[in-house]
């Protein structure tokens, strides 16, 4: 019964979620294998953010099952902290801690949560900032960085926890066009290193390039999905076709 790397890393099964009267997810299912990069696209309000926030239990679900490395998320006895050590998340609004420098933002959780020793956490944090091409910005406060730089610090901060899966919720949507590229490049590097990624994005070119699989959601259900080549060329459902024609 125990989870092996041959099983899906994240397995979402018939998930239902509503906020009060409003039904946001109406039976969503999808599997993500280790090393997979999947992109979720769809119109605004279709429940994309809600879905990925359920994966790290920022939102709870009313019905269905979400397994992360075999661990059931829809469980009252769930240890949320253990789950969140395995699942990293990056937000549209970066959400860096403004009172801490870039370096402190990255090394704080490893020290406080993973109880790593300070010196080694600092060394790894520096290495991570270098990896996201922010060498020299260690001592800058978030307010002193551009949107793209802040978002890359946020990615480094999440990676510092050495997660097995990364969730990205429209991480380029709040950025100036000229800094979108640097953030996408960072994610692409990660994907190539084999990080398991679940991305919500409106960047179709990027999705086509990095995704192993694309899911199209509308009104809380997955309308259509497939590998990028077939998905973009041969969308079957009229809702998908309409969405793609608007956005491409």
């Amino acid at each position: 019964m125990s989870w092996t790397p041959a099983d899906p890393m994240v397995s979402i099964n018939n998930v239902h979620k509503s906020f009060g009267e409003l039904k946001v997810l109406n039976g969503v299912s999808l599997d993500v294998m280790k090393g997979d990069v999947i992109c979720i696209i769809g119109p605004s309000g279709s429940g994309k953010s809600t879905l990925i926030r359920c994966v790290n239990a920022l939102n709870d679900i009313q019905q269905g099952s979400i397994l992360v490395e075999g661990q059931e998320v829809n469980d009252e006895k769930l240890n949320k902290l253990e789950l969140r050590k395995k699942v990293g998340m990056v937000f549209q609004q970066y959400n860096l801690f403004p009172h801490k420098t870039a370096l402190q933002n990255v090394m704080m959780a490893p020290i406080k949560v993973l109880k790593q020793n300070k010196a080694s956490a600092k060394t790894s944090a520096r290495a991570l900032l270098k990896k996201v091409r922010l060498e020299g910005k260690e001592d800058a406060y978030p307010g002193e960085l551009s949107g793209g730089q802040q978002q890359r610090v946020a990615i480094a901060r999440s990676l510092a926890m050495q997660p097995d899966v990364m969730l990205f919720d429209e991480v380029t949507a709040a950025l100036d066009p000229e800094t979108v590229g640097e953030v996408l490049q960072t994610i692409k590097d990660l994907a190539e290193e084999g990080m398991t990624c679940i991305l919500v994005t409106h960047e179709m070119g990027f999705a086509r390039e990095v995704a192993d699989h694309i899911y199209f959601t509308d009104r809380g259900v997955i309308v259509e999905h497939g590998p990028p080549e077939t998905f973009f060329k041969n969308a079957q459902d009229p809702r998908t076709q309409q969405f793609l024609s608007q956005i491409l």
Binding site: N56, K80, V113
Partner: peptide, 11 residues
Amino acid sequence: GQWEAAESLAY
């Protein structure tokens, strides 16, 4: 977002 970022880092 500050709460959510901290929560998702397992604080």
